[in-house]
Structure formats: C-alpha cells, structure tokens
Design a protein around this nucleic acid. Sequence first.
DNA 1: TTGTAGGCGTTATCAG
DNA 2: CTGATAACGCCTACAA
Lengths: 335, 335
Amino acid sequence: MVTLKDISKACGVSLATVSKALNGQSDIGKETSERIIRTAKDMGYLPNAAARALKTNRSYNLGVLFVDKTSSGLQHEYFSGILNSLKVEAESLGYDITFISKDIGKFSMDYYEHAKYRNCDGVVIASVDFTDPDVIKLVDSEIPTVTLDHVFDNTTAILSDNIGGPVDIVKYVYGKGHRKIAFIHGEQTSVTQKRLASFHKTCNSLGITVPDAYIKNAIYHDAKSSALATRELLALTDRPTCILYPDDFSSIGGMNEIERQGLTIPDDISVVGYDGILLSQILRPRLTTFRQDAEVMGREAAAKLIDQIENPKLFLPQQIMVSGQMLEGGTVKQI
Amino acid sequence: MVTLKDISKACGVSLATVSKALNGQSDIGKETSERIIRTAKDMGYLPNAAARALKTNRSYNLGVLFVDKTSSGLQHEYFSGILNSLKVEAESLGYDITFISKDIGKFSMDYYEHAKYRNCDGVVIASVDFTDPDVIKLVDSEIPTVTLDHVFDNTTAILSDNIGGPVDIVKYVYGKGHRKIAFIHGEQTSVTQKRLASFHKTCNSLGITVPDAYIKNAIYHDAKSSALATRELLALTDRPTCILYPDDFSSIGGMNEIERQGLTIPDDISVVGYDGILLSQILRPRLTTFRQDAEVMGREAAAKLIDQIENPKLFLPQQIMVSGQMLEGGTVKQI
DNA sequence: TTGTAGGCGTTATCAG
DNA sequence: CTGATAACGCCTACAA
C-alpha cells in the first residue's frame, strides 16, 4: 500500500508537503504541487479512509437504517427504490453508505452505538418502527439524522404526501361517479393515520358518508390480508363500488379475490392501489394508483443530510414534502 | 467520546491494561479485568472502528458490488433478497456492509480502489457486468472476493443451479404432455448461456426438436421485451404450447400479451417463469416457476467470504451450488 | 500481572 | 513556500 510517506520519498519533499499538495492547499508551489500530484497518481496512491477518519473525525460514510418488522424492507419496491437513489446521490457527493443495525456480531449495540462505532457522519432513518426507544435515542443524539415518512422535533424529515395522495385518489374516483368507496389500510403507523384521516376528510368534504364497515385493516405488502379484507367487503349487503388498497402489491391479493368471486375489474368493482411501483404499470388492466416518488425521496434524504453535515451552522430542521401523482390505469370504471 | 485513556484514568491503570482487558487477553488479573470491563460499560465506551482498522488492517467491513446496466439491481426482488440475507449473515458474524461503486464524489476510482480506500476486508460481487475490466481487476487483486452466479479462476463462487433449473422445468412441462416448448431468454450473460444450453440439452435428451423460431431473446426484468417476443411466438404458424420466460417479472408482460390476443392461460398456452419471487406466488393462477434460493445464496456468500478472510491459510476457491426447486402453480396445463 | 513506548496513515499547527 | 512535529485512538511487543 502506497502512503504519503512513499510519495514524499519519491519526490524528495516532506510528508507534510505531500499532504498539503494532495489536499489542494494554496501554500504550496505550483510546480512542486503538480509534481507531487503526478507521482501520486503514477504510484497509485489512495488515501486511507480509516486514518483520515481518525484524524478528522469525518468518515464520509452515511448510516442507513432499513429494517421493518418483517426484516424485509428491502423487498418492498418502494423502499428499494428509495435506497437506490439515496445511494446514487450520496456517492455523487462523495459519501459511502453502510447499513446500521442492532447486534453486530457478539457485541450488542443499539443503533446509536453502531453508528458511532462506525463514525457515521449522519444517518438516514427509513422503514423502521419509529416508536422504538433505540430509534429515539439515535434521533436525539448529536449525530445528524434525516427521517423518511415520520416527523421528529429536531430532525429533517422527507415526507411523501400522505395527505395529498388520498385526496387525489378520492377526488379521482368521485369524478368517475363512485360514491361507495371502501378503504383497506395498512397496520397502524403515522403514515396510515394520515392517509386514513385524509380519506375521511376528503369524503366528508365531498358529501360522502363512509360506513364503518367500509374501513378495513390489513398489512402492508401482504396480499393475503388484503384478500381477506376484500372478501369481507364483498360480503356486505351494500357493497362498495370501489376499493382502495394499502399498496400496489397487496392490491393484487384483493383483485384475485374479486375475480375468484366471478366479478370483473373494473366492470363490477373498481380498484385503486398506492405506490405506483413498476409492477403496477405492467399489470393488465394497468393499475390505477398513486405514485410516490421514491427517487426524489432518496435523493432529497441524502442531499439534506449531507448539507446538514457540511453546514451545521446553517442547519434548521425542515419537513420536505415530496409530491406524488395519480397514475390513471384501467381499474376504475366510470359509473 | 470515551476512549481507552479515559477508562484507564478512571480505573487507575494503564492504557495497555485496559486494552488487554477489553480484548479478553489472558494475562490480566481477573479482578482488574472485571473492574475495567464494568467501568467501560458504565462510561459507555465504544471502540473506534477507524482507529482499530488503522492499527490492525482489519475493518470488519464487507464491500458489496451491486450494479447492473440499468442501475437497478436493487429493484429486482431476487437480488434484493440476496442482499438482505447477505446483510443478516454478515452482521451476525460481526461485519458491516458498504456499497462499492465507481466514481465516489470527485474522486474517480475503480472498484478495487474504492474497496481499498474503505479498507474492506472482502467484497461480494453480485449483479454486475462480469466482463468489465474493473471487475476483473478487483477479482485479480489481493482482496478476497466471492462472486455470485459467475465463476472466476481464483475466487469462490456461489452459483444458482442454472443447469438444473431448465432441466427441472423442461422435464416438468414434458411430463405435462408438452412437446412444443419455446424459450424466451434474457440478454447474453454466462447465466443465460447456461440456461439456454441446459434447455437444449434436456429437450434433446427427451427427443424434442426445438425449432430456431422457438428461441427468442429479451431482457431480464423487462415486461415489454418479453411481450414482444411472445407476440412473435404466437404469430408462428406452428405455435408452441408452452413458453418459458427469463424471469417471473417479465413473464407478466408475456401473459398480458397472450390474454390480449384472446387466449387463456393455461388452456390455450402454458407459461413458466423463473426466480420464484414473492410476486409469482400471489398471481392467479399462481405462476409455475423455478425458485432460486436467494436467501441461501446471500447467506453462503457472506459465510464463505468471511471464512476466507479469517482463515486465509485454509482458503481454497470453491464453487458452491445452491439448488432451487420447481414451484408448481396453475399456468401449465396437462395436455 | 501490569506498564512503557512505538507506530498505523493522516492532518494541522507552527516554525523556519 | 516548505518542513518538523504532535496528535487522532488503538494495539502489541517488550520491559518491569
């Protein structure tokens, strides 16, 4: 491994001079500087991140918290989309990404300790149980954090528009003539609460009354529970004409159930998803859904976190709303 | 931040003693050792990974190469499944995971340089273009590597059974009475070559002749290209009775095309996928497909790599075959 | 059984 | 403009 020392020998200058030249300090002669940079490249010099981190207390490394109860946040196309754009943006700004978790090896650490141990300059928190005390500890610590889809007091949050989504959806299906709209929602989280409240509010403002029986709970990204909820809805004497699902993936479970009962989509029942993942757009009929912009969410998360890291003086926690958009497919009928 | 020095002061012993006690060296008095460990915990001591890496040349950090041409290897459920289990296994063995890529920040590095810069103890190579000279450079370097689904000379490879998969599939559909079997394959990679060769060989051994027109190329994870290939197959005067797809996801494109032509699955045309991702199991009819065991692949990759890192003397490159299994769904008709 | 001291590769301060 | 030199936090002969 070639170090600064090797270069200093090769160039016949001091170690300090090499360091300065390579870091573009202004107080080095232009010629010397160029010579040093050239030989450094020739010799295949690479800075040693560990040494640099030790000295500067900056690792250029971002932690990412990506766990959910099913341990499969990564399988969810929405989240893997976020991760991907987060990675791309961070890398373009010179930062690497490391997963943060509890219990690394025999050591039992919490998230904060893990991030600290790895000298993370900051942590992006996505897809976790935000009520976990370990998450709160991390958020309350001195480590800069950015949360996704959850607001804490002193942290920047990147938020998908969980109010606007249901508004757009309900207005859309209302415009298609639907008045009996059922809503199957995911497990209790602040995201779910927002979507549900927004659903009710929008229905209310449009003069639609939603029977309690039209609200069903299920589990995100779980086709089975949505199928079950669907079956219950179809068994009602006063059936809904349109069903909103927690997400695109689970809507497939619902649609299967509908078709199993000999009904067709959208002629007998209309269906709307949520997320707008790739999958939704290759189904036939194309799924009518609300697209969350995972790419922007990931990019913003990285950008805001790095901004906070690099300009701590200017830091003000903010909530950044990332808007989505309706994707009109063929699963909602005009009635 | 609490360091060894702080603990040494608090305990009234030397820094070296603390280090030894915390690392479980045998040459420290039992009492002293216990006292040190206790106060370390009380004070909330955490080792500093950077300092340790600098000193020991071991980072307990694994690099992961996860890029494909579309920059979306992560979106592919098969790969995100591998990543997930890789992560879980590595963490349980005390290793963290960092993504490796080209061009981090203004620095333009290749994969090897990036891994070196981050002091990765080893790198898992998955989902890349294995002909990329930068990949070859990394594989040929002194950094331990493990590849997924591709064999290099001096490296351990974790291989999905791309020979056995097509064998099982062809035998299965043959058993269902099919003799006119078409195969739509993904872009040219060694994986594709193996599957294709195995397909031909198996057909041959069963006495099936496959017309050239039954072999179509498409793109992995791309519904559109599979739909197109499907259309061409259906236009043949002597149509296949069964179509094999490059993967589950793209098979949806094919199935849409089939249904758009007024044909039903499996009554008019039978269909088989590849991968056995979650999605395939929630479709109705359930997709008949060959499941690749992503969980085992990820786990083995981590385990073998770490084994190689920790026992370099005992290292022998090996090829580990991870077998899959047929998942019988409802998309292949008995004829 | 414990302590001393040197060094891993960098950066930064301060003199020359 | 350039060069010593002291840290950063940790590990490890070697000495006591």
